[in-house]
Simulated scan of single mutants.
Amino acid sequence: MPYEPVTLGFKFAVRVHHLTGRDVLVVTCPACHKSYWVATHVVYARFHAHLPLEVAAKDFVCKRCGNTRDMSWRIERATGPEFPRSA
């Protein structure tokens, strides 16, 4: 299933409850460049719905190198014939 980057607003204003079921949170470690694709239901289970993702990103830890600082993240959304591009 193809994914495309999506912008939900300013990074400091995007909250957990803005994520939909077809979104994926892509977290990248700046030290070892490992990328993790985190499903929305995992983010909902771990963090409060009104918590900004920028604050939640401070709890991300790289499983490869153990880095906890400056983890970058972006949101990608599933597209395809069953998912229209506008949502």
Rank of each mutant, 00 (worst) to 15 (best):
G21H: 14
F10N: 15
A39G: 05
F47M: 05
T7A: 14
L51I: 06
V61P: 04
D70R: 11
W73M: 02
A45R: 13
G9L: 05
L51W: 08
V26L: 01
K34H: 04
K34F: 04
D70L: 11
K34W: 04
V26K: 01
G80S: 10
W73L: 02
P52H: 14
K11T: 11
P2R: 13
C62A: 08
S35F: 01
A57P: 02
K63H: 13
Y36H: 09
F60M: 08
T40F: 00
K58Y: 04
H18W: 13
M71C: 06
S86E: 10
P81I: 14
L19I: 14
V38P: 06
K34G: 05
V16R: 07
K58Q: 12
T79I: 15
L51N: 06
V6A: 05
E54I: 11
G80W: 00
A87R: 05
F83T: 03
C65L: 01
A13G: 06
A56C: 00
K34Y: 08
F60K: 02
F12T: 15
M71Y: 00
M71E: 02
V24Q: 04
T20S: 06
K34N: 08
W37Y: 12
R77E: 04
A31H: 12
Y44V: 08
F47G: 15
H17T: 10
L51F: 05
L19R: 08
V61S: 08
F83D: 01
T79W: 03
Y3S: 07
H33Q: 10
D23F: 02
I75C: 02
L8H: 03
A56N: 04
F47P: 11
P5G: 08
T28V: 12
F60I: 07
V27L: 13
C65V: 00
V27R: 10
P2M: 07
R46S: 10
T68V: 13
R15D: 06
V14I: 13
G80P: 03
L25A: 01
P52L: 09
A56H: 02
C65R: 04
L8R: 10
R64I: 12
F12V: 15
V16Y: 14
C29V: 10
D59C: 15
C29P: 09
R74F: 02
Y3G: 03
K63Y: 08
K34L: 07
P5Y: 12
R69S: 07
T79V: 15
V38R: 00
A78D: 07
V55M: 07
D70A: 08
V14L: 03
A49M: 04
L25D: 00
R46V: 03
R46K: 11
H41C: 12
R22Y: 05
V61N: 14
P30G: 02
